[in-house]
Design a protein around this nucleic acid. Structure first.
Lengths: 217, 217
DNA sequence: ATATATTTTTAGATTTGTCTAAAAATAAAG
DNA sequence: CTTTATTTTTAGACAAATCTAAAAATATAT
């Protein structure tokens, strides 16, 4: 399987082109920053190889085989992200591009060993689940902090707004990736939240809360 | 710089096509398991990009720029080999193929971090020196054990014969990669060697000695 | 429902890296 | 110093992945 074929499979997967949902040619073209005509060509090839089911003008969806392939690529991508953050001290927002390259390295033993070396992590640095070797996904929803219910606890796994000012704000108030956050109170008036983080209780605005992703297992 | 271009540069480097020594088209073709005509084409391109100096029918040699590039690729290759052996518990004879893929990953920060993470190693698992970031090579000769002088000490860094029987022999007699070996005596009669290894003194045949590489710093 | 707009596909061209087969240059041998 | 053999280069073709421009199918709007 080609580097490029893998990229297409992954794109279709991320657009949700699985379990009977069909994905349009244009959507894939946009996702991959290429032209629709190129997409049609590649889809033809993937269809012949039975990674996708394709009907002219009706879009594509992954076959079982294609989805398995997609999950294996996603697994590699996310494991490498964990490696970069946990072992090489990259910050979670600079690993994507490199993982995009590393995910194409071909060696089953390499991925198995890497997985063990990292302690078989279940989530990547952005809080997204890592598919198991057999392709199972831990189905946990990552949600915005303002959607978390009262007295529930979540782990901070990412940001929606990744602008420098926002990241600086988080840094200043001691909110970091991996921190455990409990929602103590919700103000009806302006939607601001009283939260517990690192054994301190602080008040944060709705705008902050609606840009912070947490995972509640 | 393309994946393929990098492969050619590396091949020329390994054939010694540096410092005024020219390498023949056929030699490159053989090394890369491709055809001479393909080599000519690629050499043209590399010549235009000034990575090699090329005169028709006279072979090629790397320019300063090309050599720098080659050293950077070799550096990546060998650092990844160390990673695979030291961190992922690969054995030193199964890492080459994977490192061949990993050496093409593009990220300066990645290699710098990897280097630090591994403790800035000076040699790869085969005993070959790892070029520094600026392209300097520790010039130590790796030699066969039977070429080591009396009372000199070397570190076991590889084998010439990598057949299963030989590796089994080494295992059985407790000779492993990284072991310190001192040559205590040489028998004129049959060339066998009395060596000290792991605080034990043993006698090994010339045939064994002439298939074991050591590094004497 | 018919005209218009959008999406998707086709047809033909391009680039990269490769190949085969034939021609040209160099090296080796008598 | 010719003739033969080897090496290297050219010429032309091919597969992969892409693009542009035009045609075909589908969707939208009045």
């Amino acid at each position: 399987m080609t580097h490029s074929e893998e990229d297409y499979i992954k794109a279709i997967y991320h657009l949700g082109g699985t379990e009977n949902k069909r994905v349009s040619t244009n959507a894939i073209a946009e996702q991959m920053e290429t032209k629709a005509s190129s997409v049609t060509d590649m889809i033809r090839k993937l269809s012949e190889k039975e990674y996708v089911s394709y009907k002219k003008y009706q879009g594509v969806s992954l076959t079982d085989n294609g989805e398995k392939k997609a999950l294996s690529i996603v697994r590699k991508h996310r494991l490498w992200e964990v490696f970069l953050v946990d072992k090489l001290d990259f910050s979670w927002d600079e690993v994507h591009e490199i993982a995009e390259q590393l995910e194409h390295i071909k060696s089953e033993k390499l991925i198995d060993s890497l997985d063990k070396h990292l302690g078989c992590p279940k989530f990547d640095p952005h809080g997204d689940p890592i598919p198991s070797k057999s392709g199972e996904l831990t189905k946990t929803t990552k949600k915005l902090l303002n959607e978390v219910e009262l007295n529930q606890t979540g782990i901070c796994v990412g940001v929606k707004d990744s602008s420098a000012p926002f990241l600086k704000f988080l840094d200043k108030h001691g909110i970091a990736l991996g921190d455990k956050i409990t929602v103590l109170d919700k103000e009806d008036f302006d939607g601001s939240l009283q939260i517990n983080i690192n054994d301190k209780s602080i008040l944060i605005s709705h705008q902050i809360a609606s840009n912070l992703y947490v995972r509640c297992d």
